[in-house]
Write a protein that binds this DNA or RNA. Structure first.
Lengths: 150, 150
DNA sequence: TGCTGGGGTTCCTTCAGGGAACCCCAATTG
DNA sequence: CAATTGGGGTTCCCTGAAGGAACCCCAGCA
């Protein structure tokens, strides 16, 4: 085996990377999330090679994060996020928060998020699912779980 | 230019992917976060090629997410997360949450997080930095920001 | 009847990843 | 005082994935 297979590692990061661990997949998911659903649109917006776009779309469909859906009597398809895929957007939202803070520079962030619940432009924060307080790298201990390697 | 350069795109996701957009970087950051800081440890834990590990470490140091620090009179180094790098762990924590939910299977999650603030084993949630309520893909509108492309 | 446009597939070239061998040098060992 | 060891790389070759461009299929339409 030449390229490493991440899907079998006992690590949820590695397994997630098997789904979206090269740079095009997150950008494809981003585009589909903002409403660009067709091959031609994706290809021209991203500037990705057609071959690689085909591979990535098939892979994302295989992994259950996208659904391929015909939209015409002719063989025309659009790609839509499944529930599993929509939750993967969480990862992108956190990438946006980090990129906005550390890489946006003078110009400021390229896009803004307005939160429906409060109507404000804001960004995403990480909190504890149990107590709701902030939860970042330094706020946790990492313990072995039931699915840990033997 | 053969491989696409993501760093110049007007998108915080693409720019973040320029830093950690291939599968090894997140795993390297994970290992360093849990205390594995030396070349040899990383190499044998990950099973990554030595050449690629060297490249990735240099890249992460260049991007300011790792710091290379001598730990001996001999030329021996360890790699530690900078503040910028520690905040990048947020992205990994969200990948873990998603991977635990969708890919862990019967065995359950390989690792658990205990939150210092409440002492409970929990996972990370996304909330709005303004109102604190949940904030996921369907809870936002995406608007052009000041750094949007011309 | 020919044109068009979406959604690919094929082919070739180049470059990045994998794997293994090699190197440098300070400390330790016999 | 050799010789060995071990960390932290570097070099080499081989394979496979990304880029780019051309080609293809087919339904609708002029």
């Amino acid at each position: 085996m030449q390229r490493t297979d991440f899907s079998e590692m006992a690590c949820s990061i590695a397994r997630t990377l098997d789904v979206m661990g090269e740079p095009w997949s997150p950008l494809i998911l981003r585009d589909i999330f903002v409403g660009m659903s067709r091959f031609e649109q994706l290809q021209s917006d991203l500037g990705i090679s057609r071959k690689v776009l085909t591979e990535r779309l098939n892979h994302l469909v295989d992994r259950g994060v996208l659904e391929r859906r015909p939209y015409d009597k002719r063989p025309r398809y659009e790609y839509v996020l499944t529930g599993k895929g929509l939750e993967l957007i969480d990862v992108l939202m956190v990438m946006v928060a980090w990129g906005d803070k550390w890489l946006a520079g003078e110009a400021g962030p390229p896009v803004l998020y307005r939160h429906h619940a409060c109507g404000e432009v804001s960004h995403v924060e990480l909190s504890c699912s149990h107590c709701g307080k902030p939860m970042h790298a330094n706020d946790i201990d990492v313990l072995p779980g039931p699915g840990a390697a033997a």
